[in-house]
Nucleic acid binder design. Structure first.
Lengths: 189, 189
DNA sequence: TGTACATCAGTGAACGCGCGTTCACTGATGTAC
DNA sequence: TGTACATCAGTGAACGCGCGTTCACTGATGTAC
């Protein structure tokens, strides 16, 4: 970590910019983010972000990639045969990283053919898929694809509704990912 | 229907603008919509939309309101005790009206305290809620709120993933709302 | 049927603004010898 | 330890653009008498 404050070179500007962008997205949504405003927040000249991300799409692509890596981190280490727990972790990830989650699932924001993004996406995807295929066939029905989609839909829908503020009134005082865990018991018991 | 073509007064400009905006949202997302571009598409002067919607937020608020009305229309007439069918209709609505659905669930786009929007929202909400409470307690577990949220999450998640293009590869050739109907059987049987 | 008047719908010019992008530049760092 | 040089990171001025919004206006419609 070479840089102190006040130097010409920032030292870790890329990380600083990503963090600032994530904050801005969480507050006002991706549409309100501008590269100039981002630079202002980070205290650098307005041309600096271009240096790191090329353009706005590049910025969002980097955030989405980071998001899939964070999701993979969240899922790694869990018992892959415990599908309910995987679902809870998925929901917890979305609530902990709302800005990443939003960008990850808005294809109009990112460079969809970016190789790093594709790699991060497929790695997280394989972790999720493994969780479903590890469930004994008798408990998930005959169709594994359908079971996978059902589980994913349930977790994704819950997370999306929570982030959109549609669960605020009924669930304001609860831990939402634990509530989700309880909810899955209702369905799978 | 007073107006022909070429007249100074358009006749039904509000509807025309709403339709054009919906088309633009479906193609490029809400962030890309500008009032000037919208006016261009409708073939009117760029100041005309302001006359009908006041500003951009007003436009999105009108679209969200219309969306909730369309959703209510889609749900009306269904057997309120057939929760699975209600879910299928919810998914079918989202797929048939992707732009409306997107705007309805993005609170950063609309005037949340708009009374017409609130009325349309709560009407659709009560139709959905009725479907869950009509399910016999034995089949939905002890907690009606939780059952409601589970059903909503499942349908909402499936619809969201479909609209984001996350189901394109596995389900490209299928009727998605029928697939969803089959999926719910797996969970509720 | 005819005229006067109020209301409504859409026009087009003008404004100021923040934006993305480009460019030649300069300060700082790291490496070779 | 010292010097020269290449590379990298960030600067700041400049550009052209499309945007939202305001405004006095004009054309069309509807209503009262």
């Amino acid at each position: 970590m070479p840089a102190g404050s006040g130097t010409y070179h920032h030292g870790d500007l890329r990380r600083t910019l990503l963090a600032a962008a994530v904050e801005m997205i969480a507050e006002h949504g991706p549409a309100q983010v501008s590269l100039r405003d981002l630079a202002r927040r980070a205290g650098v000249s307005h041309a600096a972000p271009t240096h790191h991300f090329k353009d706005k799409t590049g910025l969002f692509t980097a955030i989405a990639t980071e998001g899939y890596q964070l999701l993979s981190d969240s899922l790694t280490g869990a018992d892959p045969s415990d599908l309910r727990n995987m679902g809870r972790r998925y929901v917890a990830f979305a609530l902990a990283h709302p800005a990443h989650f939003t960008v990850m699932f808005d294809r109009s924001l990112v460079r969809n053919d970016d190789p790093e993004l594709a790699a991060a996406t497929s790695h997280a995807g394989s972790l999720l898929r493994a969780a479903v295929t590890d469930v004994p066939p008798g408990r998930r029905g005959p169709d594994a694809d359908m079971a996978e989609l059902a589980a994913w839909s349930l977790a994704h829908g819950f997370a999306t509704l929570a982030l959109n503020g549609n669960l605020d009134h009924p669930l304001a005082h609860r831990n939402k990912s634990d509530y989700f865990y309880a909810l899955t018991e209702l369905l799978f018991a």
